[in-house]
Design a protein around this nucleic acid. Structure first.
Length: 259
DNA sequence: ATGTCGTTTCTAAAACGA
C-alpha cells in the first residue's frame, strides 16, 4: 500500500503533474494541499481523476488553501474542516485546511497547517490554535481506527530539517512553540515517519527563488504522522524529487510512504 | 535584489500570500 502527500500549490496549475504522478507512481492514497479550487468546480477535477481510476473528495473555497483526498478505494465518513464549532480567534475564519476520510479501515487526514507568517503576528497565534484544535480532533477519533495524518505542517520538527538553521532563528517553521504543538500531537501516540532521516537533505520544500532547489536550500515541512501500530508496518519513505523538477513544478515535492 | 510563482482584480500591472 502506497500513501502520498503533496502540496501542489494550485491544482489548476498542477493538474498535468498530478496526472503524471498518478500514472507513474500509482499511489493507493494521495493527500493534496493548496488545491486553491472551490467546491463549485470540483467536479471538473473529479472527472479527470476518475479517468485514472481514482475517487476524490475536496474541501476548498477557491482562492487560497484547499485540501483533498484521492484514493483507489472507497472513502467513507468524510468530514470537511474541524468537528464541532470551534471558537476561532479570528483569522482565516472560512479557510479550508482539513479533510478526513476512512479508507480500508484507516482514518486518513489531509492537513494544511497555517503558515504563521511572523511569530509576533495573529497568524502565528492562529497556527498554534489550529494545531491544538487538530490534536483535539485526532484524540476524539482515536481508538476506533488506525490514524494517518499527512500534509503540509509548515513546521520543520528538528534543526536538521532545514538547510541552514542559522538562517531561520526566531522565525516560523522552527520556533519552539509550534514544535511543542507538534510534539504534543506526537505525545498522543503519533510517530513522525519522515523522522527516520537523520541528516540534512531529505527536504520536501524549496523556495522558487534564488535557485534554492538546485542548491538544496530546503526544509522538511511535509510530514506523515501515524499511530505507532501503523508505523511498525512502514516500508520505504521517499521524497519524489523528480516532481519538483521539470515543467511547472510545485515548490513542494510529494512524499511517498509504503506500508 | 522579496531574485518566483499563483491567485485576484479596474484584463495591465499590481497587490497579496507563500
Amino acid at each position: 500500500m502506497k500513501i502520498a502527500t503533496w502540496n501542489v500549490n494550485s491544482l489548476r496549475a498542477r493538474i498535468e503533474r498530478v496526472q503524471e504522478f498518478l500514472e507513474i507512481k500509482e499511489p493507493d492514497i494521495l493527500c493534496l494541499q493548496e488545491t486553491k479550487i472551490s467546491s463549485d468546480i470540483d467536479q471538473d477535477f473529479i472527472d479527470i481523476i476518475q479517468t485514472y481510476g481514482y475517487k476524490a473528495n475536496f474541501h476548498g473555497n477557491g482562492q487560497w488553501n484547499g485540501v483533498a483526498i484521492i484514493s483507489k478505494n472507497e472513502q467513507t465518513n468524510v468530514i470537511k474542516g474541524f468537528s464541532g464549532d470551534p471558537k476561532n480567534p479570528g483569522v482565516d475564519r472560512n479557510d479550508c485546511r482539513l479533510i478526513r476520510a476512512t479508507i480500508d479501515n484507516f482514518r486518513i487526514y489531509s492537513v494544511y497547517v497555517p503558515n504563521g507568517r511572523e511569530v509576533d503576528s495573529d497568524h502565528y497565534v492562529f497556527k498554534l490554535y489550529w494545531l491544538d484544535r487538530l490534536k483535539a480532533d485526532l484524540e476524539s477519533e482515536a481508538g476506533a481506527q488506525q490514524q494517518i495524518v499527512l500534509g503540509d505542517f509548515n513546521i520543520a520538527p528538528r534543526d536538521s530539517d532545514v538547510f541552514d538553521i542559522s538562517a531561520f532563528r526566531g522565525m516560523t517553521h522552527v520556533s519552539q512553540k509550534e514544535r511543542d504543538a507538534l510534539a504534543a500531537i506526537e505525545a498522543c501516540g503519533f510517530v513522525d515517519l519522515g523522522g527516520i532521516w537523520e541528516s540534512n537533505g531529505s527536504f520536501t520544500w524549496w523556495d522558487y527563488r534564488q535557485g534554492a532547489f538546485h542548491k538544496n536550500h530546503g526544509m522538511r515541512i511535509d510530514l506523515c504522522l501515524s499511530t505507532s501500530v501503523v508505523a511498525k508496518l512502514m516500508g520505504a519513505v521517499s521524497v519524489e524529487r523528480d516532481f519538483r523538477k521539470g515543467s511547472k513544478p510545485s515548490d513542494h515535492a510529494p512524499v511517498m510512504i509504503e506500508f
